[in-house]
Design a binder for these strands. Sequence first.
RNA 1: GGUGCGGUGGCCAAGUGGUAAGGCGAGAGUCUGCAAAACUCUUAUUCGUGGGUUCGAUUCCCACCCGCACCUCCA
Length: 470
Amino acid sequence: MDFRLYNTLTRQKEIFKPLKAGEAGIYTCGPTVYLYAHIGNMRTYIAEDGLVRALKFCGYKVKRVMNITDVGHLTSDADTGEDKVEASARREGKTAWDVVKFYTEAFFKDFKALNCLQPEVLCPATEYIKEMIDLGVTLEKKGFTYLIPKDGLYFDTAKLPDYGKLAGKAHVEGLREGARVEANAEKRNPVDFALWKLSTPEEKRQMEWDSPWGKGFPGWHMECSAMAMKHLGETIDIHCGGEDHVSIHHTNEIAQSEGATGKTFSNYWMHVRFLVMGDSGKMSKSAGGFLTVSSLPEKGYDPLAYRYYCLLTHYRKQLEFTWEGVEAAARGLDGLRALAAKVKAEASGQVPPADREAKYFKDFSGALADDVNMPAALAVLWETLKDQSIPAPQRLAFALATEAVLALNLFAEKAAEELPAELAALVKEREAARKAKDFKRSDELRKALSAKGVLIEDTPNGTTWKRTRG
RNA sequence: GGUGCGGUGGCCAAGUGGUAAGGCGAGAGUCUGCAAAACUCUUAUUCGUGGGUUCGAUUCCCACCCGCACCUCCA
């Protein structure tokens, strides 16, 4: 089956043709570790995880490379401002290296909580300084660069005829004409960007390295070009990232890489649209109040309810975040798990291999292969699990198979929850009252428990309870 | 100012040139002391507005209205 992917470069869905049959080399822009990642960031990682898992499900051997930006990302993309990591270190009174370590660990904690697969290769930018310098030297030799004294080595975008092809020529022309105030008048073109920034005496950087141009640190775009080519070759299959990277970061990666090699940098570009906050404004790091993955359990939600929420909307459509939406997703996921548990019980221990020739299986993989259409894939799962005409063991086998791509812990055993002694006593008292047919007292107690977030359920096998969210 | 995207039932959301997946919610029934849970059923002749192409458009084209994002730090 053909795997189709929307390619930002051509603005259309294309059949994915890998460089090596059956394999996919993917580079995904990772986090800048100067602060916690927020749930908007995580939407992108969930979508990329979906791509990786979908390709694997469809039989591809995937090598995913993800960078950790631990140096060189300035507070402004115009190559001005402070290095984010250095700024964060100063703010928190830590060393830059401690900041990086702390937020890298925090990131992967969230990453795992959302069931994102660990990338095959992880690369911190600070471990690839040599590769970045080499790339700068190559570009310099080929005449793509110029040096601004006491500032840095810059890429001359006028030297690359198709500069800006990813974002669209007209778009780059718009930038060139300077809709924005140009912060650095010494640049030859407003869209030129730094390959290497020189340390300045007043700056007192914690992270800096020697280079042919002087002591300093790499420009933000350098790491992705250097590391992607190091691990995946001069041309890679798929490059992913958030939609904001189209016009600057990825455009400049292309400029650096293609300038240096003369070859196509990436055959396919996949961009995930933003999660936006409905009422509380923009989801951004600079805005301060942003939600992290840990906000979810704090509100009583399984982080995977957020994964499900993201999967419910196609990655190329803007997703508006609301707590109501998370609630609906959480209920949906609960329902899906309950359905899965029921099917498992019906299957009574039988787990045959999944029938890959069955219509539902093909529908499911077809949805994945159609530009990673997760909402459609989920619909297939729901319909299949409910379809009584399919033997339960077959449905179970299918559900288990879909976990490889949906990763929603459908069959997770719920940890036995303990109720505080006083509430447990109320549950017992109510059960006794109910047995004695004292329904008035029984209903009072049920109401009281409900007010404390405990929902009573009377089953033929006795009374049970469960926590409600709140 | 530049670029791009979207408007589908109460809400979220797939989708297609031949008459609308799925989820949440809601309503009815079964069950229950009553509930809850579960199960069954129901819930858009209609896809922003106005034109056009077509035997036929929600799906293609044009115009318009509305909303949003990116180009500032973002994924």
